[in-house]
Amino acid sequence: MVPEELKKYIGKVDPPHLREVEKGAIRRYADAVGNDNPLYYDEEYAKKSRYGGIIAPPGFFGWAKQTIPSAEGLMGVMGAMIEAGYAGILDGGMSYEYFLPVRAGDTLVASPKVADIALKEGKTKMMIVRFEVAYYNQNGDLVAKSYQTLIGRQL
């Protein structure tokens, strides 16, 4: 049974937040990955490509424009997992569906949702949390959806 204090998070939708996709942040992200694809930093090259400008590597959705309260979303759920005794939290995996490229200069609206929380009993008890985010661009088009899995272990 999923503890009551976590159950209340299932289906919880957080207020959408704005994310700015700045070209400097894209360059820094690509650099940290060790990805030297010129689409992510070379304006001349990117202008001549099919995209007509710098894009972000899939997986990067810019930076939140405002501070997201720590009681909300992923941080809120992680706090509740720790409270419930599942303090060993590991990232379990990530999936995406992509519909459009994310471009430098975009302002995205991110809508996070706690899709599911489940308990898995094997050798040890684990809590599995699935977290979904839909990203829309400034034109209102859905650009991508992400699905993240968090695994909480009792330490």
Partner: peptide, 13 residues
Amino acid sequence: GDEGFMKKFSCQY
């Protein structure tokens, strides 16, 4: 390449 488009991606740690 530049003309390709990644529609779906998934990985598990």
